[in-house]
Design a protein around this nucleic acid. Structure first.
Length: 427
RNA sequence: CGGGGUGUAGCGCAGCCUGGUAGCGCAUCUGGUUUGGGACCAGAGGGCCGGGGGUUCGAAUCCCUCCACCCCGACCA
């Protein structure tokens, strides 16, 4: 993409309404535009990141045996009355009536809806286990939206629902998602710490949240120091049983009086919740009468779990974990483009030719590149490129005549003088 | 929802206390000079000062009211 034709409204001014780095940077980098409290338009650059994250989540869901569906954003309220959550979900549920005066709501979560699908088609244990997920917009009418897309009212979430015949099998499904989540966040270049959590309105007695460590996180986390070192290891070498056996709790779940580990092993940090997995058994299958025949002919409610990942929140969380005073530093797997190509001598015919050639070559090789071909001062271009945080910068300028360009790593700041013909090999 | 704050040009702000018909920086447009870390000169455009109501000869400024947004707290991917 040529920056001269790209809709990228960057700004050097810090927007007054934003108080945390990710919110400020997303606005300054032209990723989002606020439409109302907790509601945002995704602009081209922001949408690319959102889609990258979404695709990683999708691939890992599929890899771990889940099947994608797409449920409506608007649900009839009848299901909520049937499940018993109508009254207790509270004001967060955005409710309204259609022209026939039928009560409807904008989905904040989809346990009812998926269970309704399940009960209509699945009648036998032979069809179990089954794991269905969607990546869909949700709306929760938060008491206080804040921090941009970190706590928006409308947000993109991956929600997965597992159905099993018995508890033992359901726990296996839960563990399957646990592993899936470790892998999913790893692929995004993020270290997520799983901690025991309060199941809240979803229900059940077994749940864990996955948190990205960041100073601006809303959760207080308490965990064994070995978890951090284990989480930076390669996934293949991780001892899952050991990892899950180590103490890790969030907020109210931590009680200093009963904490089983020594203070010197306890790490206290703040985290951003980006995923949450729940096992809640038959809470919904009982109330919604989702029964299957077991091998012995008995009719039993299916055992369920649900598993969320905050896709839009991850965009902000990734920034909170990766930025400096000049801007965002994207992990390569979720960066909007891999390479920022900067024409640093926009009046120099040789440099223009070389930059154009490199641009064409990168495109031919399917390397995602944003080409700053604008007729602007070099400092302006550098500042913009640092702000939007692409992992690699290729600068074409003073040594263009000899075919040399600079390759700069946004994260480390390392700068390499290389010949343009060697560029592809380095990327 | 309780407490606090802010609404003035696209963005960041001053002016308000002490009423006299709106200003600064950035951005934008035109022309020229520039171009290796957010360039410079000259010129230009852009505002029902959040909405409504009042007080006054006169309101961005004082009073009432509504709305929006932000911050702190209780809930959540």
């Amino acid at each position: 993409m040529r920056l001269s034709r790209y809709f990228l409204p960057t700004s050097k001014e810090i927007p007054s309404e934003a108080t945390i780095p990710s919110h400020q940077l997303m606005l300054r980098a032209g990723m989002i535009a606020q439409a109302g409290s907790g509601i945002y338009t995704w602009l081209p650059l922001g949408l690319r990141v959102l889609k990258k994250i979404e695709e990683i989540v999708r691939q890992e869901q599929n890899r771990f045996g889940a099947q994608e569906v797409l449920m409506p954003t608007i649900q009839p309220m009848d299901l909520w009355k049937e499940s018993g959550r109508y009254g207790c979900y509270g004001e967060e549920l955005l409710a309204f009536t259609d022209r026939h005066n039928r009560e409807m709501c904008y989905s904040p979560t989809n346990e009812e809806m998926i269970t309704d699908v399940f009960r209509r088609y699945v009648k036998s244990y032979k069809d179990l286990p089954i794991s269905l997920y969607q990546i869909q917009w949700k709306f929760r009418d938060e008491i206080r939206p804040r921090f941009g897309v970190m706590r928006g009212r409308e947000f993109l979430m991956k929600d997965n629902y597992s159905f099993d015949l018995d508890k033992e099998s359901a726990i296996r499904s839960y563990q399957n998602m646990y592993q899936c989540y470790l892998r999913t966040f790893n692929r995004m270049g993020l270290v997520a710490i799983p901690v025991k959590a309060d199941p809240g309105a979803i229900g059940g007695n077994m749940s864990q949240e996955f948190n990205i460590i960041a100073e601006t996180g809303e959760n207080e986390l308490y965990y064994h120091k070995d978890i951090e070192t284990m989480r930076t290891q390669s996934l293949d070498s991780i001892d899952l049983e050991k990892l899950q056996g180590l103490y890790a709790a969030s907020g109210e779940m931590h009680d200093p009086a009963t904490c089983p580990i020594h203070e010197k092993n306890l790490v206290v940090k703040r985290g951003i919740e980006v995923g949450h997995i729940f096992y809640f058994g038959t809470k919904y299958t009982r109330s919604l009468n989702a029964l299957v025949n077991g091998p012995d002919g008995s009719l039993v409610p299916a055992e369920m779990g649900s598993y969320g990942i905050g896709v839009s929140r991850l965009v902000a969380a990734a920034i909170e974990a990766n930025f400096d005073d000049r801007g965002i530093i994207w992990p390569e797997s979720i960066a909007p483009y891999k390479v920022g190509l900067i024409l640093a001598k926009s009046k120099d015919g040789v440099a223009i030719k070389l930059a154009n050639d490199i641009y064409a070559q990168l495109q031919e090789n399917n390397i995602e590149v944003l080409y700053d071909d604008r007729n602007a001062s070099t400092g302006y271009k550098f500042a913009d490129m640092d702000l939007i945080g692409l992992p690699w910068q290729v600068i074409v300028g003073k040594n263009a005549a000899s075919g040399y360009v600079e390759l700069k790593n946004r994260k480390s700041g390392e700068l390499y003088q290389i010949h343009s013909e060697e560029l592809l090999g380095k990327l």
